[in-house]
Design a binder for these strands. Structure first.
Lengths: 340, 340
DNA sequence: ATTAGCACTCACTGGTCTCGAGTGCTAACA
DNA sequence: TGTTAGCACTCGAGACCAGTGAGTGCTAAT
């Protein structure tokens, strides 16, 4: 459908625009060393590409910029791999040899590095907890009516929640409760917790514990692992240095959704594992209609998945970002899977 | 030194400027119902106030705005208390009756509410951990060489850290270790931990534990509670709606320091308990030379202190913010102290 | 099929003008 | 002596206008 030359020119133009953020004119293209057509020829081709919807003009006599359709075509068909320089590669490797960072610290560092390397904003969503297994439960008394409940998973994730104890609860009951819970629930995947409690724990508790009703209330409240995944940001403000975000009104909606975990959570929900690119209005959110979001997944213990995302202007350095994200998500998966 | 009338006009002018963010002219003041002087008279007075350094002009024929010295004088001598409307007051009260939120959640909610009420940005620094006491230590095995160490304080704060176990470490040794630690360190204030380990724990461990050296290394690494206090933000982007921050170049340095915990930590360090106001360049940071920072402290269990801060433009609604901060910090202290 | 040439478009820049809000100063006034 | 009316002056903001230059589309020549 597109001629070789059109493909070539489209790629050249997008590359140039990504680099310069300025509309690209026919003459600028014709002056490149690797281009041997006159500006007039290129003008004709660009006009055709515009007719087909791949390019746009900002005003009637301006150079061209890629349309969303143009970007789409570019990432689908023209994405050429890019070299990551040796020193950069080394930096990444050494960072990922720090094997004994905590899970969260590791993710945080990943987010920050990726952001530095791309100069866009990165968001990393912690691994879905649902599939992880319960390792240990503990209740620690603070005073008469307050305690803290701690849940540890097999991936080393620690959740804690404050609970209030029913007045006059039996001290031993708590101890019993903890023992029973640990016995019955050890290595149960978190998403099965409620079910398991219903099936196996309830009866045992009823038999053994005097303040049964109160205890159940606590349990249901606390073990209800609806905890939205933790979200880690890298270079939240990097994106503000991009020329398309010099206007505060463009920026505010963007920064505001960064603060809303649920929205981010939805935004990064990917249909499947692997790399996904959403360009401009392909994202449902108006706030990011001028942004592209690239997501990819990583795995822990071969299963539970988390998401790495980079968000930048639609004029994003797709080749470099895609390459980097591959490297980062693989490195992250690698180091996390080593652990088991 | 200043006449009654000058005091009055200064107050009126600052109030007006705080409200409108526009330079205030003599005529605008003279038209107010509570002012009975002609614009000419007021011009003379304003000229005098400018000579004394309390006011400034943006250009030779503009109205006046307060100088930093003017704001300083205003907050020191002219701050009149302000009414918080009944419905607002109710909102605050009901929010602070949620007694059984976790410590962190409670602080987070406080930060967000205060930010909503002021429409500036709030930062709340968690209570200093130093003075809190250790309640419980636990080490939970994840697999051969990894474990997670959990430390719970008497305030219900939970810290956890991933640790790597020396290969082939004795399982029983760990159990012994935990027991010894809990026995010896229970209710020891965190800041004394290292000292206490040195004095009392080391010897016991040496006697009882075979892989003494490795264990000590872990301990020193893990219990080194240098953990900078957690920082909670409310309405990070609220400040961007202020007219003085329409320029992205003004905003970026500000947003960037928000991401640097150490800097924020330094910024909020207050010389003493109670309320402090730092105006513009009184803050050492250039990034916030056009901002004012109001800090106040709250207490947990009557002792360990945390900090509440509001950061906004120098043209801040000081009376309202000060009043609100009093209410919030008191409410926070109240609910936290109830707990013991 | 390609390209040179040319007329045309449009954003951007810098200069000039006007308008209006505000000041400082002087002189008149209570 | 403190207050006020009046007036000339200043300056920023906005409107208007031409000139410039980068870019286009189209046509005719190669």
């Amino acid at each position: 459908m597109l001629t070789e030359r059109q493909l070539f020119l489209l790629q050249v133009l997008v590359d140039d625009y990504i680099r310069s953020a300025e509309p690209v004119g026919s003459r600028a293209i014709s002056k490149r060393d690797d281009v041997h057509y006159s500006s007039a020829t290129i003008r004709n081709e660009l006009a055709d590409l515009e007719d087909m919807g791949f390019l746009e003009k900002t005003h009637s006599s301006s150079g061209r910029i890629p349309s969303e359709k143009g970007y789409r075509f570019y990432v689908d068909h023209l994405l050429s791999p890019v070299m990551i320089s040796a020193p950069e590669m080394n930096k990444i490797k050494t960072a990922f040899t720090e094997k004994y960072l905590g899970l969260e610290k590791l993710i945080q560092v990943t987010a920050e590095m990726l952001s530095n390397f791309t100069s866009y904003t990165t968001i990393v969503m912690g691994p879905e907890l649902l599939d992880t297994k319960l390792k240990h439960i503990q209740i620690i008394h603070l005073n008469d009516d307050r305690a803290v409940m701690i849940v540890v998973t097999d991936t080393g994730h620690v959740e804690n929640r404050m609970i209030s104890l029913p007045p006059g609860i039996n001290e031993q009951d708590i101890e019993k409760l903890v023992n029973i819970l640990n016995e019955k629930l050890k290595m149960v995947p978190l998403y099965q917790l409620n079910q398991k409690i219903e099936q196996e724990v309830k009866n045992v508790l009823r038999k053994n514990i005097s303040s049964y009703n109160q205890v159940m209330t606590i349990l249901e409240k606390t073990l209800n692992v609806d905890s939205p995944d933790k979200i880690f940001y890298g270079g939240k403000n990097n994106i503000l240095s991009q020329p398309e975000f010099q206007d505060i009104d463009k920026v505010l909606p963007l920064l505001n959704i960064f603060e809303k975990k649920e929205i981010i959570h939805d935004l990064l929900r990917t249909p499947s594992a692997g790399l996904h690119i959403k360009i401009g209005k392909e994202n449902d959110l108006v706030a990011i209609k001028d942004c592209s979001v690239i997501t990819t997944t990583y795995s822990v213990s071969g299963e539970h998945c988390g998401t790495v995302a980079v968000i930048g202007p639609t004029r994003m350095a797709y080749p470099r970002v895609v390459t980097l994200m591959d490297i980062f998500s693989n490195s992250l998966s690698a180091i996390l899977n080593e652990r088991d």
